[in-house]
Simulated scan of single mutants.
Amino acid sequence: MRIATDAAGVALWSWNVDTDEIVLDERAHGLWGVDVEAVTFEDLSARIHPEDMDRVRAAFAATREVLGAYEIDFRIMHGAEVRWVSARGRGDDQGIVDRMMFGVFLDVTERKMAEEAREMIANEMAHRVKNLFAIASALTGISARSTATTAEMRRDLTQRLAALSRAHDLVRPILSQPKEAAVLGDLLAVLLGAYDEEGAIGARIRIRVPELLVGEASATTLALVVHELATNSIKYGSLSKESGRVEVTCDTRDNEVVVTWIETGGPPIAASNKPSGFGSQLVTRSVSSQLGGTITFDWPAEGVVVTLRVGKARLGA
């Protein structure tokens, strides 16, 4: 039985329902990071993730009343590491022996991470589809203002959509195609060209950046960030108004690159209407995990100011 449980990665536990004492096998000790032979639920509670504590307490208190098998998934803290544990057993005192109930712990961290990754992808896809409708509507309005005939509008809108497609290729590149470093100014021009009044940078969008190379590993993440900022601007910010403007600047300070996105002339944004949904979370997570940098949002009366900080070596990688 020991060989079988080890092969399956199963950790065993027993629980005295009168004394609340929990006895763990060696694998369970390693999973929880405890080194004493017997513990109580209170001892283990100190290692349960704070956000899951109340739920786990209530679930374990109810296990004796549960008919048949039960399964409780929750997070525990193992030092600075977060692990997912699945506790499984049988309720309604089934299989109780001398006031001892038995069950197992499984480390389900990899499964939970895979589920979170799938959920992230599904949310990102839904977010992008929703944004595409908003962008198409906004670009149609820009084309209508900057053209005099339906033929001109059709040509202008087609060019803008083609530019948007090129920007999307930067956000989601084709894996089979070779990649190379890009000049920061050229990268920004491709990403933002579709949103300017004349379908090219210069009228409502200004870019003032030094000659700086963005490596292939960083270009996709930077493109995603800029694409998200432009989408938010055309939906809520300065690019949603004819009078609005966007300026993108860049400074290099020692070993750090600071890119600043400044919006002016747009509608006032109340605190309750500041973008804070999945897109903002995606941008913050991407900058932190993939660029090793930081991104901050400030909301002065003139319009949003976004500051992206990343190491020069990391940006060029």
Rank of each mutant, 00 (worst) to 15 (best):
N16V: 03
R55Y: 04
I234K: 02
L229F: 11
G279A: 01
L67S: 12
G89H: 02
A114W: 10
H49P: 04
R128H: 13
E211M: 10
P275G: 01
R206E: 15
P50E: 05
R314T: 04
L222M: 10
R245Q: 12
K312F: 09
A200G: 13
R57P: 02
M153W: 07
I207T: 15
A194T: 13
S165P: 09
E197G: 15
K130Q: 08
V82L: 00
R145H: 14
V82N: 01
I72G: 01
D35Y: 00
L139T: 06
A134T: 05
R154I: 10
R2H: 13
M113E: 14
T264F: 13
G265I: 03
A230R: 08
S276G: 10
L67G: 09
R57Y: 08
V97N: 04
V171R: 14
E180C: 15
L184E: 10
E42M: 11
L161R: 04
A138H: 05
I174P: 11
D251N: 11
G193W: 12
A203I: 14
A117T: 09
F297T: 06
E198Q: 14
H29S: 00
E211A: 08
P267G: 05
A162V: 10
F102E: 01
E37K: 08
L12Q: 07
R83F: 01
D254S: 03
S289A: 05
L132R: 12
T63M: 07
L222E: 03
T296W: 04
D52T: 07
S143V: 02
L175P: 15
G244L: 14
A313H: 11
V97R: 07
W32G: 00
W261L: 02
A181W: 13
T40M: 06
H227G: 06
W32V: 00
G68S: 01
P275D: 01
P275S: 02
S146E: 12
A271S: 14
F60D: 03
A136D: 07
A181Q: 14
A217F: 11
N273Y: 06
D54P: 01
I262G: 04
R309S: 14
T40K: 09
I201E: 14
D251Q: 11
R166H: 11
D20R: 02
D107I: 00
A189C: 13
S14L: 01
G103M: 06
A217V: 14
A61R: 06
V23Q: 05
L67A: 11
D169L: 13
V304Y: 08
H227I: 02
R155P: 08
S272K: 11
Y236H: 08
R155T: 12
